[in-house]
Amino acid sequence: MTEEIIIAGFGGQGILSMGKILAYSGIMQEQEVSWMPSYGPEMRGGTANVTVIISDEPISSPIINKFDSAILLNQQSVDKFEKSVKPGGMLFYDGNGISRHPEREDISVYRIDAAEEASKMESSRIFNMIILGGFLKIKPLVKFDNVVKGLAESLPGRHHSLIPLNEKAIRRGMEIVKAVHEV
């Protein structure tokens, strides 16, 4: 099994840390992982994306241009990466701020309205964990326990008190993900 994932959106949405948690979760279950950010001069508000590969085998190229799953969290990312999903692959997006929705018929599209849900839960910081929950509900690549372990590994110690809130957000994401179109 090899799963090639891109996560893209605005800087500040927690794109890179979400990828990191996913990668650490893979390590927790003894898989090979790579985490390759598109690093740039942009910070908060700019664009950010990260490629995460989780595999049972050694990973050849960590740099890829076709993905099994795309998690696209702003309009620019949908416009840029919708076409990069492999036929039969999956696209996840948040409807917030999206005017042109994903259109491809040959991939499965799921919507996770995490921005709205995060504001209801009164913490915009857990936005990425709601997304992660929605993704993992459809694509159970890593076990929930391993995600919690991954969280502990990737969060600095001073933030460990936030782990229960993050767990709650992941569970909430699992509840609110909806299929828009399935192949």
Binding site: K20, A23, V33, S34, W35, M36, P37, I63
Partner: peptide
């Protein structure tokens, strides 16, 4: 190069 410097692996 920057890709290997920024990339995370086991």
């Amino acid at each position: 190069d920057g890709a290997l410097g920024q990339m995370m692996e086991k």
